[in-house]
Amino acid sequence: MITALVSIALLALVVSLLLSPIETLGWWAGWYGQGLEDPGPPAPPENRNGGPEPSHFLLYLDGIANVGGYHYHDVQALLDGLDAALPHAVVVGSVMPYSVRDVALVAPERPLSRWWRRMFVKKLKRERSPLSFSINIRNLYQVLVAADPRYGRIFGRGEAQVMLGALVRAGYRPGSGVPLTIIGYSGGVQVGLAAAPFLRRALNAPLSMISLAGVMASEPGLDHLDMMYHLQSSTDRIPFWGQLLFPGRWPVARGSHWNRMLSSDRLRFVNMGPMRHNGPGSYLDGATVSYGESNLERTTRVIVSLVHEIEARLASGGLEPAPAVEAGRGAVEA
């Protein structure tokens, strides 16, 4: 009985992995009835009540638990915290990072939307059900699509289009040169890197990334970043899976995008102290307190300080490379 169940589960995992590139490829091929200009032609910017133009845009790409359309409480708290601490900047958090069509998992047009909705409710209730982890698996597969040399380019192009649409709707004027900083959490970093070359081309503005425990491959998108900050806890092992799984990040791959980034001094590591990847004790946990501040407060504070650092570098005549710190030794303490 147990063998049969395990076999069925494994088969389901392989079949769903096999089907995972279909959404990206089908979008590109026009099978969903959309053109490549979809989703969402850049709408006119929302009226900002005549206020000053924002001097910085922050685009948040959530981790693989994201279902699109909604945020978990801790993620919303981070976005609210950034919004409050950076009044001159616009924080955009409405992007679904794991669908090139920008369709939420819970959207009615998805055949499995009822399933995803139920699993999402389970997650919101913090029920420890292995079934609700299917959301993470589904999105993890999209991270693999983004990391695949055959599919990643199409995925990145589609996601960049989704991001550009969200930015324009939030008031970004293409061609204005206003800097964009992508804040990626876990698998969201890989999505951001896949989209980076296209975003850079479309915006022609300074582009930086703050990776919160990012899981990423050695992507060409790294070459398009002015600066990247990688925030990671000493006790969070999940980002190391990225290091293990993607050979381009191995030290032996000397000419890889990642290793070139390491030696170019555009990558800085920030040690976040003891935090977990997700759940209680995570980077976004507002209840776990150490050194007089909660994990959420600490994460928000570090991100805000890095945004200020990016702005200071820009104000001083461009982003000058920061001193490189090699992974695993001598990391900068936040």
Binding site: W28, G35, L36, E37, P42, R153, I154, R157, A160, Q161, L164, P174, G175, F198, R201, A202, L203, N204
Partner: peptide
């Protein structure tokens, strides 16, 4: 995949 008049994401 890359062909597109810059800037933006017009259909190739």
């Amino acid at each position: 995949v890359d062909t597109a008049p810059d800037p933006g994401f017009h259909a190739p």
